[in-house]
């Protein structure tokens, strides 16, 4: 008999995540893949695989979140990333505070209350600035892979300021800087500073209540973590698997 109590699906714009939890909310199984164009078919395949692996059937509560959540026909319920990330991070770290979730397509600042529910939030919309896509897109111009980004930005003390917060204009700025012979790592450092400036300004508009927590794929970037800590003068705390927190929170909400 399966020990799975619920499955959470985070159909994000960049990656698709599934997490299965036991009745106590402990993660039993997880899977993460780059998002494919037909996310509903991809999720179905991932769902079938995780159910087969854990010996579960379709009666297990399945909660979907992420931009593709409404496409998941098998979901018992769908909830926004804000509620799910808050719940996942709260369970993982056991603390209320301010959560910054920098995803591929948007970023959010969420104030988490003492019961793990979001109290207030701010979300950037209609713009890639301040998101993982900003780093990914601009770094591609420098021929640097995403996992290398943070380390490269931190390996130099020089920093080329990027004045534009717009992703497209920032790319033009990078081209100009390259043409002027600027060091790529210094440009990367400037790009990180620009993204962090945008996110921190959003956090300040909601109000930063310690501790400051990070989730989403960009949380794995050490330069982003370091610069957020510098800008806010707050300790930055990370859950064990920052990229899985949306799916994990969804699964936890499936139990409750």
């Amino acid at each position: 008999m399966s020990g799975i109590a619920a499955i959470g699906i985070d159909a994000g714009s960049t990656t698709c995540k599934l997490v299965a939890v036991d009745p106590d909310g402990a993660i039993m199984s997880s899977v993460l893949e780059p998002t494919e164009p037909r996310v509903e078919l991809q999720v179905q395949r991932m769902l079938d695989a995780i159910r087969a692996k854990q010996g579960a059937d379709s009666s297990v509560p399945t909660i979907a979140t992420g931009y593709g959540r409404k496409l998941i026909k098998e979901a018992t319920r769908n909830l926004t990333e804000i509620t799910c990330h808050a719940r996942g991070v709260f369970r993982d770290l056991g603390r209320a505070g301010t959560l910054i979730d920098i995803g591929g397509q948007d970023s959010k600042v969420i104030q988490i209350g003492p019961d793990g529910r979001p109290i207030d939030f701010m979300m950037n919309d209609k713009c890639a600035a301040g998101t993982g896509r900003f780093l990914e897109y601009t770094a591609a111009r420098l021929g640097v892979s995403v996992p290398e980004l943070g380390a490269r930005a931190l390996c130099t003390a020089r920093e080329e300021p990027i004045s534009s917060t717009c992703t497209v204009f920032a790319e033009s700025e990078i081209i100009s800087l390259i043409a002027r012979g600027a060091e790529p790592d210094a440009i990367l450092r400037g790009l990180h500073r620009s993204l962090v400036g945008r996110v921190v300004s959003m956090a300040r508009s909601v109000g930063v209540v310690a501790p400051l927590m990070l989730s989403g794929g960009v949380a794995k970037n050490e330069a982003v973590r370091k610069m957020i800590a510098e800008a806010t003068v707050e300790e930055v705390v990370l859950p064990g698997e920052p990229q899985l927190m949306g799916a994990y929170g969804a699964a936890l909400l499936g139990i409750s």
Partner: peptide, 28 residues
């Protein structure tokens, strides 16, 4: 009473992110 402020352009469909903001507000 929590407050959510949303700006829109008339005639355009609300973007996914904006709808998510309203939905998250409802969830809170």
């Amino acid at each position: 009473f929590p407050v959510l402020h949303v700006e829109f352009e008339m005639g355009d469909r609300l973007p996914h992110q904006t709808l998510s903001r309203i939905e998250a507000f409802v969830e809170t």
